[in-house]
Amino acid sequence: MEIEMRKIFNAFLPASLLLAFLAMFLFSCGGGGGGSSTPAADLTGLSMNGPSSMSEFGTATYAATASWSDNSTSTVTPTWSVNSQPATISPGGVLYCPSIASDLTVTVTATYSSGGVTETAAMDVTITNITTIPFTAQMVSGEAFFEENFPAGGGYVSDLDIFNADFSFVNYTYENPPDTSDVDTGTWSIDASGNLILTIAGQGTFTVMLLADSSTEMQILVDDGTGTPSTLILEKTVPVDSSKLPGTYLAQNGESWTFNANGTGSTTGAGGFTFTWSVDSGILKIIFNTGYVGWWYARASSQSTATTYTALNVAFVELTPTGDFFQYVGGRDLTRQ
C-alpha cells in the first residue's frame, strides 16, 4: 500500500505541492519540532521617560517602553499626545512649545495597543517662560553684528547683519564649503513687546528676542515661525580707530596686511595688491589698485593698547569698482607683527 501511494504522489503531485502536503502532515501530527509553538506574550504595561522640564522655544524628547506577560520589555512607538496648547508633540515623541506668557505645566501621554490590549503612560512636564530683554531702536540702529560658526563636521559659516538708521537691513553670508557668499536685504522694526522684527526679501519674517546683552555681544533667539527657534551669539562691531591702525598684521589665513600712516598699504592676499585706506563712519574702507573696494567692520573682540591695535578682528565685505556686491569673506583675525 505504501508503495502504491508513493506512485500516486509521484505521478500526480508536483514536487512543490508534495513538499507542502508533507509539511502539513508533519505539523498536524506534532512533527518537525517535537511540540507546539510558543504563544505571543500579552501587553501588560507601558512606561515613558524623558525630561520633566524644558524652556519655551526648546524641545524635549520622550520614549516609551512596553512590558509583556513573559516579563520582557521592549521599546515601542506609541501614539503621543499633549493636553495643552500651544505645546505640541511629534509622532516621534519630540515636545515643542513656542512663546508662553508664564510657566506652563502640561501632561504628555503615550498610548500603545497590542493584541487587543491598550496601555497608557503619562508625565507632567513644566515648560518655563524665558525672560527676554526688550530691544530698543538705539540698540540696533546704525549698528552691525558679526557671527561665525565652525560646524562639527568641518567648514566655516559667517554672517554680517547691518541695521541701517532708515530701518533697512542687510545680511551678508559666507559658507565654506562650498566657498560661496550672498547678500540679502529687508527691513527691521521693533514691535510692542520689544521684539526685533526682520522682514527679508524672499525669506519671510523673523522674530528676534534678546536673551542677554553685554558690551561685546548679544545672545538672541530667532524664530522664523516654521520650527524650533535658533539661539545665536552676535558679536558687536566697534568703530575703527585710524590712529591705532598703522603697522603690519598677519591674518589667520597667512595673508600679510600693511597699513602705512600716509593712507597707503599693501597685502600679499590673492597674489598681492596695493591699496589706499581711510576710515569713514567707523568703517575701514580699502580701495585696491584694481578698483575693488573692501569694507572692514572692526569686531568687539579686537584688542589694542592706548596707541596701537595688537589684534584687529574684522568682518570683510568686498564691492566691485561700480559699488555692487562682489563677495563677503567672513571674518579676518589680524595680529600685529
Rank of each mutant, 00 (worst) to 15 (best):
N71G: 08
D103Q: 12
A101R: 06
G92K: 04
F145V: 02
E175W: 04
N195T: 12
I162T: 05
G186Q: 09
E147K: 11
D184L: 15
P177W: 01
D191Y: 02
T73F: 12
Y174D: 00
S181F: 01
T126K: 11
L160P: 02
E143S: 12
S158D: 13
S113G: 10
A152I: 06
G92Q: 12
T136D: 00
T126Q: 09
F135E: 00
A144G: 03
S74D: 09
V183A: 11
G186P: 03
V125W: 05
S168T: 15
D103H: 05
D182I: 05
T77C: 02
T109W: 03
E148C: 14
G153V: 14
T180I: 15
E148F: 14
T107P: 10
A110F: 03
P177F: 04
N71P: 03
P151F: 15
T131V: 13
A192Q: 10
G116I: 13
A87V: 07
V140D: 00
Y156D: 00
T185G: 13
F135N: 01
V125I: 09
V125G: 07
S168Y: 02
F150T: 12
G115E: 08
N164M: 08
G142V: 10
V117N: 06
G153I: 12
S102Q: 10
V76W: 02
G153R: 03
V157H: 01
T126E: 02
A121V: 13
Y96C: 15
S84P: 11
S81W: 05
S158A: 15
S99V: 08
V170H: 01
E175M: 11
T187H: 05
D159A: 07
E119F: 05
T109Q: 05
T180V: 14
T126R: 09
E119V: 15
V76L: 08
S168F: 01
